[in-house]
């Protein structure tokens, strides 16, 4: 079980971006499908993994029928490797590992299967792996989000979505810290206090305090571990009346009050045609290559690929 944590100094082969954010309906699958397609268009190989287990529908965003096979073949051992379950999509270089053909009870994945899956994801032979996650903060979702340190939070400018995002961030920290405490040699009292299942109301702040009290030397180790995250934030369904500076403000707040660096990647304008594309079973960014939303998604894809926006995209020629 230690293997999940042992990434060591070896950078995993693909760049993995888990896409989460707590609230349902904010566009996680839309963002995942769009960014996957745009990164693939840059000539990189991209695997999209639909890990919204039990509610998987990423294929619809890609404008393709549900693949006949996918994750289920890997989990029931019919496929040796995870990458052999990846289905081609209408976009060159973009592949989909779907969970739509998994058992109806897939949402309750066995622990061993989850670990096997996470380890396989880290070794996928693609340039990029985008993991589309479901809503909520259940353990599976959190563990998949922790597959890499480059988690992307998608939210909308609404208070409810922002509230869920903050809760999701805190849940991610808590899960990570618990993992660390289980796997490392912490003071027995600290361990007992943190892992005490009766104290369900534990927050990551409390954990920090508990560790600081019982095992002060470990506090630095802790902070170093969670300081290694490089979280990203995307504001989707951005309407004209929303505060244009909101993304930057949330970035500032997160950087000041959490323990890891956060980067606001950009806003994506609200567009009715996103819904139209889903009805028409067409990939939005392909169908509408010149809308504001597509250009904003391109900028975000560019940031993920190169760490900086393309200069040609900064000032759209018109």
């Amino acid at each position: 079980m230690a293997s999940v944590e042992k990434v060591g100094n070896i950078e995993p082969m693909p760049k993995i971006y888990p896409i989460g954010g707590g609230k349902g309906g904010v566009g996680k699958s839309f963002v995942a499908a769009s960014l996957g397609a745009l990164l693939a268009r840059h000539g990189r190989t991209v695997a999209l993994i639909d890990l919204d287990l039990g509610a998987s529908n990423l294929h619809t965003f890609l404008g393709m029928p549900a693949p006949k096979d996918g994750l289920n073949r890997f989990l029931n051992k019919h496929a040796q490797t995870l990458d052999s379950t990846a289905a081609p999509t209408p976009v060159t270089n973009l592949f989909l590992i779907s969970s739509s053909t998994c058992s109806m009870e897939i949402a309750n994945l066995f622990y061993a299967q989850k670990i096997k899956l996470i380890n396989a994801i880290k070794k996928l032979p693609f340039d990029y792996v985008l993991i589309d996650l479901g809503a909520g903060t259940n353990f599976n979702t959190l563990d998949f989000f922790l597959t890499s340190n480059k988690g992307v939070f998608v939210c909308t400018p609404e208070p409810t979505s922002i509230e869920n995002t903050f809760r999701f961030i805190k849940a991610v920290y808590l899960r990570k810290i618990k993992q660390l405490i289980k796997r490392h040699d912490f003071d027995a009292q600290a361990k007992a206090a943190v892992l005490d299942t009766a104290s369900n109301a534990l927050t990551s702040r409390d954990i920090m305090d508990i560790v600081a009290t019982y095992d002060p030397e470990k506090e630095r180790f802790f902070k170093a571990c969670i300081g290694r995250f490089q979280f990203k934030l995307i504001l989707n369904q951005f309407r004209k009346n929303a505060d244009a500076g909101l993304g930057k403000k949330i970035e500032t707040v997160c950087n000041r009050h959490f323990y890891s660096p956060f980067e606001f990647l950009g806003g994506v304008a609200f567009d009715e045609r996103v819904i139209d594309s889903i009805y028409a079973k067409k990939l939005y960014v392909k169908n509408y290559p010149a809308t504001a939303s597509t250009m904003e998604l391109e900028q975000i894809a560019e940031l993920l690929a190169n760490g900086q926006p393309a200069s040609s995209l900064l000032q759209p020629a018109l």
């Binding site: 208070p159 509230e163 505060d243 909101l246 500032t252």
Partner: peptide
């Protein structure tokens, strides 16, 4: 009233 720190 700030949305950026709502519920935080």
């Amino acid at each position: 009233e700030s949305v950026a720190t709502y519920s935080l």
